[in-house]
Nucleic acid binder design. Structure first.
Lengths: 111, 111
DNA sequence: TTCGTTTATCGAATAACTACGATAAACGAT
DNA sequence: ATCGTTTATCGTAGTTATTCGATAAACGAA
């Protein structure tokens, strides 16, 4: 079922989709957590966030669906870690987007 | 009324809020449009997007509330333009966030 | 096998987002 | 003062997001 948002350029849609994954402080906090513990972390994320376990699980699912985080089963628990390559791609996408915004000499504030 | 998302660090909340403003292809398209026409544009945005005028007006409101766009009344129409300084700040915020993610030597993929 | 731990999913409630048409408000021009 | 143009807002509808508690599923250990 195509939504209205699909009528835009694919690259804008892709960037918007990943921006949406970043559009919640809990998910940003999770990303920072996963980066801080240089390797990866399992359910300690729940202890570090003021959210219920099921809520954290949902946020992790969003991040996984956005391709930013990977989870591998490790015994009874699950080990989550950042997808470093995906993060880099996202970083580049944002950098490109912002770079495109200022080829203009931004002479004086318009209006 | 404080929501659950307010319990996170203020900087994460601020970044998440602006990421949310970018989390729709129409709003990204609007930002690109405003940057392309080096100065600013009024209602031509509506003509360039496959959306109703009222919908575009809402998206513009979101961008204004995020502080990324300014609108000044110009006769019967309104002139919108990017807030170049706010864009720069947002760019920096994203850059900082991503930079923080990779102080690790990213030895080998964990897990 | 049974128990405890860990994670995912379901169900449900509330809130927010996206979208449109219709209408109102502001303004210049006639 | 009235008309047409432009933009904002309102009302509404449908979808999606956020959150929690409760429950299920997976697994190691006893």
């Amino acid at each position: 079922m195509p939504t209205k948002a699909d009528q835009f350029a694919a690259d804008l849609g892709a960037l918007a989709a990943q921006a949406k994954a970043l559009a919640h402080p809990a998910r940003l906090a999770i990303i920072q957590l996963l980066a801080d513990r240089d390797a990866c972390v399992c359910g300690e994320i729940v202890d570090d966030l003021p959210l219920a376990q099921s809520t954290v699980s949902r946020h992790l699912k969003v991040l996984k669906e956005a391709g930013l985080v990977q989870g591998t089963v490790d015994g009874p628990s699950v080990c989550y870690c950042l997808d470093a390559e995906a993060i880099r791609v996202l970083h580049d996408r944002f950098a490109d987007f912002f770079a495109q915004l200022e080829p203009r000499s931004t002479p004086d504030d318009c209006c």
